[in-house]
Design a protein around this nucleic acid. Structure first.
Lengths: 181, 181
DNA sequence: TCCATTACGCTACTGTTGGTATCGTTAATA
DNA sequence: TATTAACGATACCAACAGTAGCGTAATGGA
């Protein structure tokens, strides 16, 4: 029962394509990165990419989930800032925010991308905070929108992300979640 | 000295094209609206549109400036919320946020759009607040990014904008500008 | 009136890009 | 050996932003 019949998939292709996607989108942006380019960079035919992912958005989301990592689980009392700060810091990473801003752009036009983004990016973050704090999911959603939205918009208008802005936005979101509204 | 030599421009074309742009982008989104469609809807040839605007982004920005309107000038003491709330409410308008989210998407890839967006959208807002409050421009920029970014991101993930979110975000930005950080 | 100048509509076109179809080949199982 | 599925390669399609060229209409000036 090792394999289904037929030629097995090359085992290293998924990782190579994801890595090429992250690298290229980080330096050339979402729109500036074509699928031909990704495939060539990963040493794979474009048709192979489309056998494994449904669309460019699907691939980029997969690459983003990979490079984003998992949010830390706040353990004690004052650790809320740890989780929120982690999110803000991750978005400061050019790879993360370039991948994300491209996906958000697609989400505006495509409800499927919207749902996938909620489920694979926002949900895990929300789960941690709700589990550790019993906070309302709506409040966490709002805090997430404030952190991610503010930083992405800042990056869009400024071209890069200022560290001071990351800190201030973190502070704002922590206050919001602490129930000081 | 009435006119330069040559056939004068049809005087109502600018307004008609802007109106068609607002209408179509509001209901079909930025990517879902083609220039052929805009031209047809405005009763004008596509080449005429390109004689008057340099690009789709240029046209959409022009239409956005038009439909956004001018921020109110806060007059007295507690009127900061008036100006910030105006901005948040304007973004709640589907026409405004659809136009804006498309432009922000272009701004990520195109520094020229980035600069134009700063100058024609954020600048007037900033001018009012700095003139009336002597607040630092950097603080106003941040507040702008928080209001606009949070609401656009919320819209991107939810598909529409919740009124409660508009209010909360306004509150957050007002606090930020009041120097309670 | 004739001319230079500029806007217009129209049609046709280019170039890019996400995504697909086809096909011969290769690597696995049964 | 037969079947099954993945692969690379190439060619292709459909959209769409933006451009070129052309005949025509409308203005001001000589």
């Amino acid at each position: 029962m090792e394999h289904r019949p037929g030629r097995p998939r090359r085992p290293d292709v998924d990782a190579a394509v994801r890595a090429a996607t992250v690298r290229l989108v980080a330096q050339r942006g979402y729109d500036g990165t074509t699928l031909d380019h990704i495939a060539r960079e990963a040493g794979v035919a474009k048709t192979t990419v489309y056998r494994r992912w449904d669309s460019k958005a699907d691939l980029v989301l997969d690459a983003l989930v990979d490079v984003l990592g998992e949010p830390p689980l706040p353990t004690g009392g004052g650790e809320l800032r740890e989780t929120v700060g982690w999110l803000a810091a991750r978005i400061g990473d050019p790879a993360v925010h370039q991948l994300l801003v491209g996906l958000v752009g697609e989400a505006v036009a495509d409800p499927a991308v919207r749902a996938a983004l909620r489920q694979r990016i926002r949900q895990p973050f929300e789960d941690r905070l709700v589990a550790a704090w019993g906070a309302g999911a709506a409040d966490v959603d709002l805090a997430f929108d404030v952190v991610v939205g503010s930083l992405l918009h800042h990056a869009a208008l400024a071209g890069s992300i200022d560290t001071r802005v990351v800190d201030t936005v973190t502070e704002v979101a922590v206050r919001l979640l602490s129930g000081e509204a």
